[in-house]
C-alpha cells in the first residue's frame, strides 16, 4: 500500500513536473511579452520566413537620431489607418541608459503591437552586418522587402508617400 502511495505521489509529481516543463516552454516561446526583444540572426531569419511573399518594411532606429523619430511618427500615422502594418522595428541602442528610453518611445508612438527587436551590447557591429553587410550604421535605415524577399535599403528619413504606397494595402 505504501508503495502504491509512493507510485501515486510519483505520478502526481511527474504530471506536475511535465506540466511545469511545458508551461515554462510556452513562456519561453512568448518573447513578445516585452515591448522589444533582443535581435539575433535566427529570429531575424524566422521573421523573413514569416513575411515571405508579402511586401514589408524593416526600420532601424536609435533614440539618438532625431530623423528616426519623424519616421516612427510616419509609421504611427499609417498604423492608425491600417492595423497590422507589415513593419518590423530594430532599435540599434545597446546602452543600459537607452533601454527605458527605447520602450518609452515605442509606447509614445503607439507601436507596441509591431514586432520590435533591439541590438545586444558588444554585438552591435555583428548584428548590423547580419542585417546588411553593406550598411554602415547611418540612421534611420529602412529596408523595403518585396514579395520575392529582396531587400532594398535606403538611408535617411523616408518620404511619407513612399511609405504609404509600400505599406498600405487597402
Amino acid at each position: 500500500m505504501k508503495r502504491l502511495m509512493s507510485v501515486k505521489t510519483l505520478l502526481l509529481t511527474s504530471a506536475l513536473l511535465i506540466g511545469a516543463f511545458f508551461m515554462s516552454g510556452l513562456a519561453q516561446s512568448e518573447p513578445l511579452s516585452k515591448d522589444s526583444v533582443e535581435f539575433n540572426k535566427v529570429r531575424f531569419e524566422q521573421v523573413k520566413q514569416e513575411k515571405l511573399a508579402q511586401k514589408w518594411l524593416v526600420l532601424l532606429w536609435s533614440v539618438d537620431c532625431p530623423p528616426c523619430m519623424k519616421e516612427l511618427a510616419l509609421v504611427q500615422k499609417l498604423q492608425q489607418k491600417q492595423k497590422n502594418l507589415a513593419v518590423v522595428m530594430i532599435n540599434t541602442d545597446t546602452e543600459e541608459s537607452s533601454e527605458q528610453e527605447r520602450d518609452d518611445i515605442i509606447k509614445h508612438f503607439n507601436l507596441v503591437s509591431l514586432k520590435s527587436f533591439h541590438f545586444t551590447q558588444g554585438q552591435e557591429a555583428q548584428q548590423r552586418y547580419q542585417v546588411d553587410p553593406q550598411w554602415f550604421g547611418e540612421l534611420p535605415r529602412s529596408y523595403f522587402i518585396d514579395e520575392q524577399g529582396k531587400f532594398h535599403g535606403k538611408s535617411g528619413l523616408i518620404a511619407e508617400e513612399l511609405l504609404t504606397q509600400w505599406l498600405l494595402t487597402l
Binding site: 519561453q28 516561446s29 533582443e38 539575433n40 529570429r43 543600459e96 558588444g122 554585438q123
Partner: peptide, 18 residues
C-alpha cells in the same frame, strides 16, 4: 529550437555584460 536557445545565450551575455 535555436531561437530560444540563443535567446537565453543572448540574455545571459547581456546580463553578464551589465
Amino acid at each position: 529550437e535555436p531561437m530560444d536557445h540563443s535567446q537565453h545565450q543572448g540574455q545571459k551575455s547581456a546580463k553578464q555584460a551589465k
